[in-house]
Nucleic acid binder design. Structure first.
Lengths: 228, 228
DNA sequence: TCAACAATTGACCAATGGGACAATAATATG
DNA sequence: CATATTATTGTCCCATTGGTCAATTGTTGA
């Protein structure tokens, strides 16, 4: 409720300041409506009302409904992504990096049913919206990269890749569970669950040839590898 | 394309025979439309066309749109559930029961993007449809029960419960992955993934007091090898 | 102060959707 | 065969929706 405003103000460039603010307001409103109404019930009128504006204004800032919701998805993702990145910055060891990603994905002020509902509705549209699909792809790529940045040092490339799939699936699945039955899974449970998964997988003697000559640092701290 | 017809014919009760057939046709059509169009695009007209009938007939057999799609969800779930149950019948050991559930959830003629898309759309509506929520609850309860029927003998109740959550989340997550990026995960990969998860979890020395005096059978055919 | 420009609104429109219904065809029943 | 019941269609209605547009209201800057 405040983060984006900061961005707009601190930034010395004024450019289309007002325009940017409106757009942000609107995609937030769009997301809010999505939370309550789902994709089928998310009408331009409702979005406008939610934003305290008229319907016309929505189409003034976004070419059409699709575009609006595409931006809504970007926005939502950015928030979640920031949570992860912030934690990642503080991580020192590979294992800490892993935990950062995991915990970041269940930030308690984000791991909530409404957010999940909106996210679900958006996901359900991916197959019919090229743009949404692309965004999804980017999101997943970043997630993978974040996970790999820690996992690289903890498992062979093949196994790491496998664990990445496992972690992402687990995370998504836990979110889904939350959306389907609010209250059935707490943030702590979720984190616990994924961490246990990782522990279990890392403890297994790896079925494939473990040695591939790649990075060797062992789980202990490594410190500086953090780039951005 | 044949299963349901059998049910209707074999059953000695003729009652509203034709009516039942129509209803089944229609909820199947509804599901098919859902696969292509998503919840927002799934109109009564399209469902009728898909079923080769007129729009009126749809509302003749279902009170309204909601009811139609609720039945569509039941139908879809029944199919998936049957796959699991069939495998479960053949299972002999606890571990085999576990595998039955896992493999049944990724049956190759079911683990397909379109089916997933429809399922996703339905899930996205759960928060706004009391009936759908209830159905979901039932589905999950059965899944849990099925898993527990094997898991009971492989871990303490607490741990078993935890693993149930993990497995269901993983399964859902893998389905979601399939829907979001068709082709990014094969049936074999998915099964492999979940089985590895189970193996990893079962191999862990259990963090909580392991002894609860409960069932002891030590999964014949799998139990001990994993031990560290 | 006045024009140029952006923001914002509200009216309007054609298309569509869900649902009601009366009319018609089929089918069963006695 | 006549009648009651069920299946099916097509039409009609009204609310809603995405989207366009001209008109109005600030804002800014010279």
């Amino acid at each position: 409720m405040s983060t984006w405003i900061r961005d707009a103000w601190i930034d010395p460039v004024k450019l289309t300041r007002l325009s940017d603010i409106r757009r942000k307001e609107l995609r937030q409103a769009a997301f809010a409506v999505l939370e309550r109404e789902g994709i089928a019930g998310a009408t331009l009128e409702k979005v406008a009302t939610q934003a305290g504006a008229s319907k016309g204004i929505v189409l003034h800032y976004f070419r059409n409904k699709q575009e609006l919701f595409e931006h809504a998805m970007r926005e939502a993702n950015a928030v979640l992504c920031n949570a992860v990145v912030a934690r990642l910055k503080r991580a020192r060891t590979p294992m800490e990096r892993l935990d950062a990603v995991i915990e970041g994905n269940f930030e308690e002020h984000l791991f909530l049913p409404p957010l999940c509902h909106a996210w679900l509705s958006l996901c359900a549209e991916v197959p019919r919206d090229e743009k949404l699909a692309r965004i999804q792809k980017v999101i997943h790529a970043r997630m993978r990269s974040n996970l790999l940045s820690g996992l690289r040092f903890l498992a062979s490339p093949e196994v790491a890749e496998e664990i990445v799939l496992g972690i992402t699936a687990l995370i998504d699945g836990l979110w889904l569970r939350l959306g389907l039955q609010p209250g059935s899974v707490s943030r702590e449970q979720a984190v616990h669950q994924v961490k246990n998964y990782v522990a279990g997988r890392l403890a297994m003697r790896q079925p494939a040839p473990v040695r591939t000559g790649s990075a060797r640092l062992s789980a202990r701290g490594v410190g500086p590898p953090m780039g951005s």
